[in-house]
Simulated assay, not measured.
Amino acid sequence: MTAPEDDTRTVRAAGCVLWRRSPFDDGLEICLVHRPKYGDWSHPKGKLKRGEAPLAGALREVAEETGHSCTPGTTLPTVRYVANGRPKRVDYWAAEAAGGAFTPNAEVDRIVWLSPAAARNRLTQPRDRKLVDALLDALRVA
């Protein structure tokens, strides 16, 4: 189900596919977050605050969920789905980790840094896997 952009019922959210170069072999690593409330693995994301711009919300969510600051890059595909009976739209950006440290909290109890193939396999929702491919495509062009 795709909702019109002006549908006030649509829950707006934003997030990032957070990446870094491995400190061990310089390979690409993608950060995934584990949310104990849902028992899932996903990219850092969350609902926008009233009046908050999507990119600002995405960067805030990365900091809150992973403890890392980041440098945003290219826009990635928007993901749309129905959650709790309401349409949801999540805008995503590629974002390179720029430092920080994770501290477990009630919302996110673990993060992992994985190769793109391992991240694709660990993601709980199939809809999130296309974002890994979009990131790889964006980094090849950059």
Results as ranks from 00 to 15, higher is better:
25 D>A: 13
26 D>Y: 05
27 G>E: 15
27 G>M: 06
27 G>A: 15
27 G>V: 04
28 L>K: 11
30 I>V: 15
31 C>P: 06
31 C>I: 10
31 C>M: 11
31 C>S: 08
32 L>E: 05
33 V>Q: 01
33 V>H: 01
34 H>V: 05
35 R>E: 12
35 R>H: 07
36 P>Q: 13
36 P>T: 04
37 K>M: 10
37 K>C: 09
38 Y>S: 14
39 G>P: 07
41 W>A: 04
43 H>K: 05
45 K>I: 03
46 G>M: 10
47 K>L: 06
47 K>Y: 08
48 L>R: 02
48 L>E: 00
48 L>F: 01
48 L>Y: 00
48 L>A: 00
49 K>I: 02
49 K>P: 00
50 R>I: 04
50 R>T: 05
50 R>H: 12
50 R>E: 12
51 G>E: 09
51 G>Y: 06
51 G>V: 03
51 G>S: 06
52 E>Q: 13
52 E>H: 05
55 L>D: 08
55 L>E: 08
55 L>F: 10
56 A>Q: 07
56 A>P: 02
57 G>A: 07
57 G>S: 10
58 A>M: 03
58 A>T: 02
59 L>Q: 04
62 V>R: 00
62 V>D: 00
63 A>Q: 09
63 A>Y: 03
68 H>F: 15
68 H>A: 09
69 S>D: 06
71 T>P: 03
71 T>W: 10
71 T>I: 14
71 T>G: 10
72 P>A: 11
73 G>H: 00
75 T>R: 11
75 T>D: 13
75 T>K: 14
76 L>D: 00
76 L>Y: 01
77 P>D: 07
77 P>A: 12
79 V>T: 14
79 V>D: 08
80 R>M: 11
82 V>C: 10
83 A>N: 11
83 A>F: 15
83 A>Q: 13
84 N>G: 10
84 N>K: 14
84 N>Y: 12
85 G>M: 09
85 G>D: 11
87 P>S: 06
87 P>R: 07
87 P>Q: 05
89 R>K: 13
91 D>P: 03
91 D>K: 04
92 Y>C: 13
92 Y>K: 06
94 A>L: 04
94 A>G: 14
95 A>D: 03
